[in-house]
Design a protein around this nucleic acid. Structure first.
Length: 487
RNA sequence: GCGUCCCUAGCUCAAUUGGCAGAGCAACGGACUCUUAAUCCGUAGGUUCCGGGUUCGAUUCCCGGGGGGCGUACCA
């Protein structure tokens, strides 16, 4: 591909090697100073060494101005035929945008007021053979010729990160958010664990799994859709505070807020309940916002949100009743169906509880803006949650919504082994996919006994969306899935 | 899965009713000792996503395929 284009650079590569005797891919280089630190230190007569990628070149005969960028920042280079050796001047003539170089020189300010390294020596560290898009930013900060081909950028994230500073910044923030979640949990006494990604049975959520074949066992396995049932085994084992941060896989549709491979944080805390989980969520999102350089007041897609605890709490059934103006829970399925048709809510579901859930999405969930805990979900929607004693038909469960996005799901865990078995059995029998398979080992763990426990799952990619003002989940994932492009 | 829009040079985009496929940036050659979207002169660069069809003639119209964007459905 692009053989013609690349041959120009390959020719330069050959000339560097053969005419100048230069190794275009040396194994080592001198220790260099981060460009941000050089900028902070300002002008100096002492020589500094900087390394990075050549991102701009402005030639003026015997003088060349260039831009050098490393992971910390960017700085201008001043290269003069008078200062450089003949060898280095020749090397300069064979450099392209994208090459990685090392320079040594003093730091001064040009007449135009730009902090600049007056290069005494240059060394090629890596010749770039691929011509990348050139995005120029003018004096007003407006980017010109920005790459708009999303396909190209998703397929070559290395280009995206080089060319779009916003993209790089988003992934840096993602990393900081994740490490902040970890340190919050670690310092709160939680133990991080790893449970199987490949599972002989899948559970802990209602989703279509990816299936795979385990050759040496000669058995069908599944990629996990949740970590829940394994983490509760560990609660049974006496790890009272436990969490796992990793990928779950759901073989379902892709849209703005769903990715089949996504990152979830699940945590379980013995001797706690869903009220404790609400406190933890509030603390974690505030800490994560700080990690992303935000205060408790954030802007997401043009709207301001206040993360200051405590968040609003609304009851599932009440909120649906208030928003719809009807007591939908007493309605027959046919009437619910009729209402949904009137409202233009398209769904394949026809059973009462699923339709109520859809109506909840329509009337309540998608309209929630400021951070809100929706509490006390119906039992039928929450097979792994503990039933609320004082009222019938609901569980100690909540979901967190913000800006219309579901961010987390939590409950006081169901720990009654016989009740849990019955619920899972009924569900398995009714399910198309599960084919009646019960996770007996999980139920065995419950039978050994687990204490009252609060658990929560947080959608990390969505949290990153909110805290980095990103509209699409795909833009928070470094390498989103794409079809193979066979030309 | 369904609907809809898109695919032209390395990148961003043009191309009249269907009539020789162009420009800016990048690249190449040249000029230039403080520029910063450097400037000036010149050069080269194309399987118009792929395959068929209609036509004297297709980037353009039709059919099929591929990839992508957006919306939507499934996702306790």
């Amino acid at each position: 591909m692009n053989d013609e284009k690349n041959s120009v650079r390959e020719e330069k590569l050959l000339r560097l090697e053969e005419e100048l005797g230069i190794d275009p891919y040396p194994a080592s280089c001198l220790e260099s100073k981060p460009i941000s630190k050089i900028r902070d230190a300002g002008e100096t007569e002492d020589s500094v060494i900087a390394s990075g990628r050549l991102t701009g070149k402005r030639e003026h005969g015997k003088t060349v101005f260039a831009d050098l960028r490393d992971g910390t920042g960017s700085i201008q280079l001043y290269l003069s035929k008078k200062i450089l050796s003949d060898r280095d001047w020749s090397v300069l003539g064979l450099l392209d945008l994208g090459d990685i170089i090392q320079v040594k020189g003093s730091v001064f300010t040009t007449r135009m007021g730009e902090l600049t390294i007056r290069c005494e020596e240059i060394e090629l560290l890596c010749k770039s053979l691929r011509q990348l898009p050139v995005v120029k930013v003018d004096s007003l900060g407006v980017a010109h010729d920005e790459v708009t081909d999303r396909d190209y950028l998703y397929r070559h994230r290395c280009v995206d990160l080089q060319v779009n500073p916003d993209s790089l910044d988003r992934f840096v923030k993602r990393s900081r958010i994740i490490s902040t979640l970890r340190s919050y949990l670690d310092s709160s006494g939680f133990l991080e664990v790893e449970t199987p990604v490949l599972q002989p049975l899948y559970g802990g959520a209602a989703a279509e799994p990816f299936e795979t074949r385990y050759g040496s066992m000669n058995q069908q396995f599944y990629l996990r859709i949740a970590t829940e049932l394994y983490l509760k085994r560990l609660i049974a084992g006496g790890i009272d505070k436990v969490y796992e941060l990793g990928k779950d896989f759901r073989n379902e549709g892709v849209d703005r807020t769903h990715s089949p491979e996504f990152t979830q944080l699940e945590l379980y805390e013995a001797y706690a309940d869903y009220n404790v989980m609400m406190d933890r969520f509030e603390e974690m999102i505030c800490a994560a916002a700080g990690a992303a350089g935000q205060s408790n007041s954030i802007i997401y897609q043009g709207t301001e949100f206040d993360l200051t605890p405590p968040f609003r709490r609304i009851v599932f059934m009440d909120s649906l009743r208030d928003a719809s103006g009807e007591d939908l829970f007493s309605w027959e399925p046919e009437d619910l169906r009729k209402l949904m048709d009137e409202k233009g809510i398209i769904t394949q579901a026809n059973d009462r509880i699923t339709m109520l859930d859809k109506l909840f999405d329509h009337y309540v969930a998608h309209r929630i803006q400021q951070p809100t805990f929706v509490i006390d979900y119906p039992e039928e929607l929450s097979p792994l949650a503990k039933h609320k004693k004082e009222s019938s038909g609901v569980t100690e469960r909540f979901e967190v919504f913000l800006g219309g996005l579901e961010l987390a799901n939590a409950f006081s865990e169901q720990n009654h082994p016989l009740l849990q078995r019955r619920i899972l059995k009924e569900q398995a029998d009714a399910s198309m996919h599960r084919k009646g398979d019960l996770d007996d080992d999980f139920l065995y763990a419950l039978e050994t006994g687990i204490p009252p426990t609060g658990g929560m799952g947080i959608g990390v990619d969505r949290l990153v969306m909110i805290l980095t003002d990103t509209g699409k989940i795909r833009d928070t994932i470094l390498f989103p899935h794409l079809r193979r492009n066979e030309k």
